[in-house]
């Protein structure tokens, strides 16, 4: 469920980056204060472990497909929230850089979706509450299952919200949500079962290892600080985007209802340039998120003119121009390569 840059608006990407940066700085500071120097190598190696573990797969019974581990919850159980969050953030950064999973702008979203929710919400609020200081097999199973499901549902909700507020994809909010939540319910169950099984295995082999984690502070009083900080940050970010959205488009909510039901009318073909223009205007009022990512208000005014493709002649100009630009780009590239590589000279 990696968000991709291509579906993002700078506003959403930027706010999520800011939230991530704040949480990372907070977690790093917290770790330094705890002076848990043994965690430095432990976090590094466990991050690599998540990578390696994701490559081992298993056959999901009766489906023929295979599953693997996502890892946020297992890290939280072994490391505690702050260290697990930083570790998960580093795993996602490597994935963004080397495997183009997500992207650099979407990295903030991905760290929130797959790092913040399991580490700062699902682990302290669900897993720790259920498992407590004295783990049993049953409690571990129940806790891991419930926490993983919650984490993945929240993560899926995050993806939907971020996509919706970015406004690049046309998928309506409710439809997208109905698409994502059930899929991630299934993924969450599998993740929870795997987490529970692995944690039980480790707990039976070396019970003292799990004793490390409850030292992770979420059960104690002051420890809810990161959680509330994160939640508050999330609320502010969401609220900010919502209010921005609402003020420039007072009927935004109305639109989201209409947007799902009223598609058929829109699809009815009309003819001619005027018809097209009218439709564009329809569209502008129908898809307020279209303007959403223009930070400069004055840009809105010239918007209709900035779509010269509307008339046949102008479309031709646009396509010709684009083709020419591509051609030029290719020529420059080839020239540079010839110029720069001595081997070919």
């Amino acid at each position: 469920m990696h968000m991709a840059d291509a579906l993002m608006s700078p506003a959403v990407g930027g706010t999520m980056w800011a939230a991530t940066a704040g949480l990372t700085a907070y977690s790093a500071k917290k770790l330094r204060k705890d002076l848990d120097e043994h965690k430095v190598p432990l976090m590094g190696v466990l991050g690599a472990f998540i990578f390696a573990a994701q490559m081992i797969n298993f056959t999901i019974p009766a489906t023929g497909s295979s599953g693997h581990l996502a890892g946020g919850m297992i890290l939280a159980i072994l490391l505690g929230p702050s260290a697990a969050f930083i570790t998960m953030a580093s795993v996602l950064t490597i994935q963004a850089l080397f495997f183009a999973d997500g992207g650099l702008l979407a990295l903030g979203c991905n760290i929130i979706n797959m790092g913040f929710f399991p580490c700062f919400i699902a682990y302290p609020l669900v897993y720790q509450k259920i498992v407590g200081a004295r783990p049993t097999r049953g409690r571990i199973l129940l806790g891991a299952l419930a926490a993983s499901i919650l984490a993945l549902q929240l993560g899926a909700l995050g993806v939907v919200l971020e996509t919706f507020f970015s406004g690049v994809a046309a998928l309506p909010f409710a439809t997208f949500l109905l698409l994502m939540l059930p899929i991630h319910l299934a993924i969450g169950i599998v993740e929870g079962l795997v987490t529970a099984a692995v944690v039980s295995f480790v707990w039976q082999a070396h019970p003292e290892i799990l004793a490390l984690a409850p030292a992770a502070p979420a059960a104690r009083g002051h420890s809810h600080k990161p959680l509330w900080l994160g939640l508050a940050l999330f609320a502010v970010v969401t609220g900010g985007i919502l209010s921005w959205f609402a003020s420039s488009h007072p009927d935004g909510l109305e639109w989201s209802v209409k947007g799902v039901t009223g598609q058929e009318e829109l699809a009815a073909p009309r003819e001619g340039v005027h018809g097209a223009l009218a439709r564009i205007q329809d569209k502008l009022s129908f898809l307020p998120d279209y303007d959403f990512k223009k930070p400069a208000a004055e840009k809105q005014a010239e918007k209709p003119e900035s779509w010269p493709e509307i008339s046949t002649g102008k479309s031709l100009a646009g396509i010709l121009g684009a083709a020419l630009t591509l051609l030029l780009t290719g020529v420059i590239g080839l020239g540079l390569r010839r110029y720069c590589s001595p081997g070919k000279g």
């Binding site: 340039v273 564009i280 329809d282 493709e309 479309s315 031709l316």
Partner: peptide
């Protein structure tokens, strides 16, 4: 997007 947003935008 193509499934949901079917208004003609470009006339070639």
């Amino acid at each position: 997007n193509p499934l949901l947003d079917r208004a003609v935008l470009v006339q070639l």
